[in-house]
Write a protein that binds this DNA or RNA. Structure first.
Lengths: 120, 120
DNA sequence: TGTAAATTACGCACTATTCTGTAACCAGCC
DNA sequence: GGCTGGTTACAGAATAGTGCGTAATTTACA
């Protein structure tokens, strides 16, 4: 349980993306810059604490950029970094995979092994 | 915490892939059919309980196929389904993303926003 | 030849660890 | 005092690991 520092990039990636919120936040942030309160509104089920925690995790991972504006009622903007933006289409691809393979996964197609012509 | 049954395919996908083991198992299974004990050998840090649990989760998700051979000593084979195999390159892409964006994520390139020429 | 031990893929109960939410509090400025 | 973003303290829930039990057959060995 220490921290085995797996050199495996897939594991590293999943360490950041695992959980319920990271991909959701990516989803909302791809529209552009958002504030803390915007993100809470976008996703009312995330708690104040979780949002702060997850945003910081994504920031530490270099996926999200945090910009604090000095001044009165505090203002902090969040947006995706370059790497973050490059991640978005990959996440989308996973969503497409889910939709596209639905019949196969749920066993609608009993001969999922034999349709070699459609594969590739 | 009930189960909000998010209709979002990305959330659904992440629900299956989240955690430490699913992508790892996918990684080992892409080589072909493996037995329970093979997978334990491949990844000595996973407990047998976790392995059984995760394999079943992947099976339920339609990503992994379980084939039990009757008779004792018990023998069970695991391999990827069609959807599972289609998932592999997407997972690999995440790994590549991690490696490829490393400099940007870790802040090696202070002008990660301005190198528009290199992007796309 | 008989008995004990190993094998394989688990299930179950118990414990340790981690995650998540609630609530309260803090900061600075109107 | 109110607004915004954030942190801490605590509690309960979810998750993960350890170890034991099980099945029927093979092997080990005296």
């Amino acid at each position: 349980m220490k921290d085995v520092v797996s050199r495996c990039p897939i594991e590293e990636t999943m360490r950041v993306l695992s959980g319920r919120w990271p991909t959701l936040l990516l989803y909302y942030l791809k529209d552009g810059t958002k504030r803390f309160s915007d993100l809470r509104r976008d996703n009312p089920t995330v708690s104040h604490r979780m949002l702060a925690l997850e945003l910081r995790k994504l920031e530490d991972a270099g996926i999200v950029r945090r910009t604090a504006h000095p001044g009165y009622p505090l203002r902090v903007d969040y947006d995706l970094t370059e790497p973050g933006r490059r991640l978005v289409p990959l996440i989308d691809a996973l969503g497409s995979w889910w939709v596209y393979t639905e019949d196969d996964r749920t066993g609608r197609s009993p001969i999922s092994e034999t349709n070699l012509d459609t594969a590739a």
